[in-house]
Amino acid sequence: MHTVKEKNNVSVCGKANAAQTIIFGHGFGSDQTAFAPLVKAFEADYKIVLFDNVGGGKADINAFSPSRYSTIQGYVTDLGDILRELYLDNVIYVGHSVNGIIGLLCAIKYPSYFTKLVLLGSSPRYLNDPETGYVGGFNQDDLEQLYNAMSTNYYAWASGFAQLVVQNHDRPELAANFAKSLSSIRADIALSVAKAIFEMDHRNDLGKSAIPAMIVQTANDPAVPTVVGDYLLKHIPNSQLARVDTKGHFPHVSAPDEVISIIKSFI
């Protein structure tokens, strides 16, 4: 059995003896390289830990178990394993999209490891819930269409989906980069992970976190409506919300300077 470092392609850089560690966790279809500008901004003062989710980036593809990752709890366990294997403490966790919620769940499970959480474009539930009036941005038909498109022609879907969620059409290289990392995921794994993400519901967990959290949203995120940011703010104790003046689902990619500034002032 390989180590967690190998399994998750963990890389450690920055100031080795720093008092605090920043862990960056990437979202679905992305990988640790998406945080390059943020790493550069913090590496002089913080120990930096990067990793790839199993099923994405350069993580060990053989470690992908459809069972373990049928919900995001498998990823929560992975993050806990990284914290323990690297003997980390005083962790500032910066998680994009689903990894924001993974970080939050991990902080609920192991609060002593964490000092701050930064959730970039995160959502506790993507599916609308008409019964409670919750707006997640997607209805069941949207998701069925999404799964169908992924199963039918994954590479065409990846290209279209990348343009849709990255936006910033004046900088097409951003969508092209995301499309490239998305296309590098095995189609069956991408579908399985997408289902685990889009069908999760962690609204009831938000109130269990005691770690100060910064919620970061763009002005127009096609995957996470602005009301979801308000929902997180309302339900995560000790949280703040910052809106970044950019479009798309990747604030750290499309407006890294603004995100760096928000994180610096928060931590």
């Binding site: 069972s67 498998g74 366990t77």
Partner: peptide
């Protein structure tokens, strides 16, 4: 469930449900 997955079920307290442990 497999070499990578030990899943909590039927738990009380219920918040433990669906937690994944390393089976090794």
């Amino acid at each position: 469930e497999d070499a990578y997955t030990a899943r909590v079920k039927a738990a009380s307290p219920s918040y433990l449900n669906e937690l994944i442990l390393n089976p090794g």
